[in-house]
Design a protein around this nucleic acid. Sequence first.
DNA 1: CAATAGATCATCT
DNA 2: GATGATCTATTGC
Length: 183
Amino acid sequence: MPSLFELPTPRAARALLGATLVHGRVAGTIVETEAYAAEDDPACHACNRRTARTEVFWGEGGLAYVYLCYGLHWCLNVVAHPKGRGGVVLLRAAMPVSGLDEMRRRRGRDDPPERVASGPARLTQAFGVSGVLNGADLRRGEFRIEPPVRRPGRIAAGPRIGITKAVGLLYRYWIEGHPAVSK
DNA sequence: CAATAGATCATCT
DNA sequence: GATGATCTATTGC
C-alpha cells in the first residue's frame, strides 16, 4: 500500500483534497490543488531542467518545495510521485480549522474564513510559510499534513491557473462547490 | 463589474 | 538580462 505521497502526482493531488495542513497552532483543510509532473509536463519548473532548486522534485515524497513567485509571493508544494519518478502538488487553497485570528494577523487584513487562504500565495501568508521551510518533512513535526479522515465531497478537475504551457492538461483539482476554492 | 498595471527577486541563460 | 505555478489597487466602463 503506497503512501499518499507515493501515488502518481495527479492522483496524489486528488488524494490531498480534504487533508489538513498544520503549522503549529494554525490548521486548515486543503480544498484545491494542482499537479506538476517532472516528466512530460512543460508547465513544470523541473521539466528537462534538473537543477539545484528542482532537485527535490525527485526526492522523498512528503517533503516541502517552497519557492518565490513574481518576486514577492511564496508558493507551497508537496513532493509526491511513485518511486523513481518526480513531481509535486501545489497547495492552492485551504479552509481554516483553527488559528483564524493568527491567519488574519499575518495577512494584515480581516478576510472572511473562506478567503483568508484562498490562493497559493494567500495560503502561504496565512500559514506563515516562507522559503526557510523549503525541504521540510511534512509527514511529521510542527509543520505537517494529516491525511483526510473522511472522503471529501465530489472532486472537480480543470486546467491549471496562471501557466502558459500544457494548458490542455486537467491537473487542477478542487472540492466541488467549496466556498474556499480560489476564483 | 472587468481589465490592467505594478510590485520585486531567486533562479537560470 | 529575462522570466515567472500571484495578488492587490486602481482605472475605466
